[in-house]
Amino acid sequence: MVTSITSFGRSGLYDWMIQRVTAVALAAYTIFLMGYMLFTPELDYQQWKELFECTAMRIFTLLALLSLAAHAWIGMWSISTDYIKPTGIRFLFQSACGLLTFIYVVWGIQILWGV
């Protein structure tokens, strides 16, 4: 019998694994971007724009964006199921998080390819 229909994946184990895998992808992206900004103090527009125009960076950024969507969904779902006991309010909260996640993904893609 299916007991949970709002979680990211069908099983808790699947969510557990996805959260770890996306965490590693996000950690790598965070290290790269922080390192890049730290080691180019005199960053100008041209250089910044060219960074995001190169395909490898777009792939990496989209990977981070989709990882963020899954990682955040699982994380926020865990928080909501821990702390928001009334079903109605919890469902509203999860829907709001889902909508915001969708907005981030579309907005991110627009920023990356609408350049």
Partner: peptide, 12 residues
Amino acid sequence: AFFMLYVLGMSL
């Protein structure tokens, strides 16, 4: 993250 995406979009 909303603020960060906003600034990223603005910067590019």
